[in-house]
Design a protein around this nucleic acid. Structure first.
Lengths: 230, 230
DNA sequence: CCAAAAGTGTTGTGAATACACCCATGT
DNA sequence: ACATGGGTGTATTCACAACACTTTTGG
């Protein structure tokens, strides 16, 4: 085995949060080094003997003190050898989902600052981080159609209209409320709670909750979650 | 930037070939080192300053002298820190498709031997290569439904029945010939050739060809390739 | 003329679409 | 009583599923 290889392995995460009817991405401000003061995706070099997944969790803790709800490997970026001007570094990128119960950002220890940036207003970022975000956004859009990940962006109990708006916002298309509701409920993994939510004005909304166990059971029995729009 | 990181980056490829109505995976026999004589996936360490994609192409040349038809990043395996007993090595894995015109394997320079192994008869392999193959097999099965990758496993001109058999074999399910043909032809990216193929017995088959340009054009116009079976 | 594989159409069924009015609450 | 958002049913349309006989060649 050749031993002079000198390539660094980093992990980066595109963390999505949904609030105020909009989708946001978590950015952190570099505290040290050549890229000091610049806003970038949370991430950093993997430690020796550390798994990739642990590295992501560690970085998210260190830089944003945030609890994530869902994590999935996105893509490994290593076809631009100069994506990091300091070294040959490849980035194993992940995307994560955060629900609103976990939105508040702790004072970061390893980052100067942390913020939620609207997905439709991402500035030009260093490295290939814009590309990574685009890739993640495409992935999440695609996944919404065939995997129930929308629930990881909502609180445990939510009114049906929130789910609707989430789909409409992220996919940037209008949705027929009646058909959407019928379809989602027909799967049988959404349960009605015993609570209603009052918004100030209008009829109070019935709260629903996603039942992951039921979902898995149904999936094993051949159910195929898929939702399309006209 | 911390500079004592000592993690190696490898690429590995699951190369699929389809012949004799069966799906095969390319394996190579290690020539040197601790794993000498063992059969493994083609792959190896990335060179300094080399892109990941180039590394895959280089390894496939060096170890199998093969021309591939399609290449896509699969997944990066790095959650088992001891997947390689020599070092902490992560594997950026790819899968590739080869059509029968390119099936013959050159005398490998960097491998002792090379062979096509039936996907249903893969032996226990070192590292996590069984896991990588399983992941690739799942991916290719899924992709057959929504991306026209089957054509990359067939010669340029093929009889319709070959496409049918390919789907039936890989997905391990029966297919209604009439419905399948209707569906595929309805997309409009398959062209009839001016040739027929004689098999010895039975009626000669009309040859067809996949038109990638037409496919892309249609896709831009909103066509969504998807094929399901009862 | 028999065997082997290729080619082809129609009908039924169920899911997706389109669409508009009533309900419960706060002000 | 009005404004606001929540909740619901039906008719039409279209795509998928099921299904069997004829055609062309070689032996």
């Amino acid at each position: 085995m050749q031993n002079n290889q000198n390539i660094k392995v980093a992990v980066d995460a595109v963390v999505f949060g949904y609030h105020n009817n909009a989708l946001y991405v978590l950015l952190v401000q570099q505290k040290y080094g050549v890229y000091k003061d610049q806003w970038v995706l949370p991430g950093g070099l993997v430690h020796n003997g550390e798994t990739l997944t642990n590295a992501v969790h560690r970085e998210l803790q260190e830089e944003a003190g945030i609890n994530i709800n869902y994590l999935e490997q996105l893509y490994t970026f290593g076809d631009d050898v100069e994506r990091d001007k300091r070294n040959h570094v490849i980035s194993v990128s992940y995307f994560a989902l955060v629900n609103p119960d976990n939105l508040k950002l702790s004072a970061a220890t390893d980052a100067q600052d942390v913020k939620w940036q609207n997905i439709n207003n991402i500035p030009k970022l260093p490295f290939d981080h814009n590309l990574i975000i685009d890739t993640a956004f495409k992935r999440i859009k695609a996944k919404l159609h065939y995997q129930p990940i929308g629930f990881d962006l909502l609180p445990k109990k939510f009114p049906f209209s929130d789910l609707e708006h989430l789909y409409a916002t992220i996919l940037e298309q209008e949705i027929d409320r009646r058909n959407f509701r019928k379809k989602i409920l027909s799967f049988g993994f959404i349960k009605k709670c015993n609570e209603k939510q009052k918004n100030g004005s209008g009829r109070p909304a019935q709260l629903y909750t996603f039942d992951p166990n039921k979902y898995e059971a149904l999936e094993k029995n051949g159910m195929h979650f898929e939702i399309k729009f006209a």
